[in-house]
Computed example of a mutant assay.
Amino acid sequence: MSDTGEFDISGKVCIITGGSGVLGSEMATAIGERGATVVLLARGEEKLEAASDSLEEQDIEHMTIPASVLDRAELEAAAETVVDEYGRIDVLINGAGGNHPDATTGEETSFFDLPKDGLEQVMNVNFVGTVLASQAFGEYMVEQGEGCILNISSMTAVTPLTKIPGYSGAKAAVSNFTEWLAVHMAQEYSPDIRVNAIAPGFFLTEQNRYLLINEDTGEYTDRGQSIIDHTPQNRFGDPEDLSTTVCWLLAPGSAFVTGTVIPVDGGFSAFSGV
């Protein structure tokens, strides 16, 4: 699949952190189908290999690099590898993130018993990892005078959800950082370096499935049903629901869009519950 004109992203070199995850893999496929080169960066080599096999089957030009978004040296080495191979970096999608049971309150764990390590892990992978990757790959965009950084925020950054204080706080930080970095890049370096974010609504992922689906029955948990009741489109999002918004934010058609956080949420943020 290819696009022309305002929606053309063919030939762009796009790095996706957390690229072997469910949402990262879907974004990689959508971007690759439109003619871009995809670089997947993640920690688990087994999942990276599986994601690579899928892209290979679709004849999508790609590269995989095992690295942690919390290791600046690994990120800088990855950036050098990409530039050596492809000559430039056009897009960074900061997709690495997720919640963790140790940062989640529940029947067995009260807020007062949440361990420091769990909270730090969630804050680090979502927020600190986004900052470090933006530093390592964003420097090349400054040299080029153009580029696009796309962060992944969340509906919980807008209205904090119960049970997940660490994740809610981390994603709120991502949204704030998106606005800050957009202004900083435009004013200090180039107005052609854009920074935006998407705020997905509720998608079933490996990190949150245990909160939304009862493993024994396959039915929604009370929490899952509550989310559905407050989502006007009456379903969880599918990974491909993000693709068109992502590709638009990377394309020339959104050239005057920067510093924004775009909801992709089935109407959740528009619904008061009444």
Rank of each mutant, 00 (worst) to 15 (best):
I193V: 15
T109F: 01
L41R: 01
C247F: 04
A182S: 10
L48F: 06
S2M: 06
D216V: 09
P252A: 03
Y210N: 08
E61V: 09
L23W: 02
A186C: 06
R223S: 12
L41D: 00
G24F: 10
R88W: 05
R88P: 03
D102W: 01
V257E: 08
N124R: 10
N151G: 14
H184W: 02
V82P: 03
A28N: 04
K12F: 10
A28I: 06
D3G: 01
T260H: 04
M27T: 10
L114H: 02
V38Y: 04
L161R: 14
F177A: 05
S52P: 05
Y86L: 15
P165H: 01
I60K: 11
R209H: 08
F236P: 10
E76Y: 11
D265N: 11
I164P: 00
E76I: 15
K116H: 07
E85K: 15
I193M: 08
E179G: 01
E56Y: 15
R235A: 06
A173L: 11
P252F: 09
G169V: 09
E146V: 11
A28S: 06
V195N: 08
G273T: 12
I16K: 04
R235H: 08
I227T: 02
A182M: 11
E61A: 11
E57L: 15
E206W: 08
T221W: 06
V128C: 02
N94L: 04
D241Q: 05
E49S: 05
E26W: 12
Q233V: 00
V131P: 00
G98H: 13
L150S: 14
L212E: 00
L204G: 09
A136H: 13
I262E: 10
S54P: 06
V195E: 07
Q58V: 12
E45H: 05
R72P: 00
P263M: 12
F203M: 11
D102V: 00
S68W: 10
G21M: 09
G237A: 13
A30H: 12
A251N: 00
F268A: 09
P200N: 09
D3Q: 05
L204P: 03
V264F: 13
F203W: 09
I89G: 01
T217F: 08
D59G: 03
R223N: 11
L119G: 01
H62N: 07
Q121R: 15
D222P: 01
G147V: 03
F256A: 06
L55K: 06
M185I: 05
A36S: 13
E61Q: 12
S54Q: 13
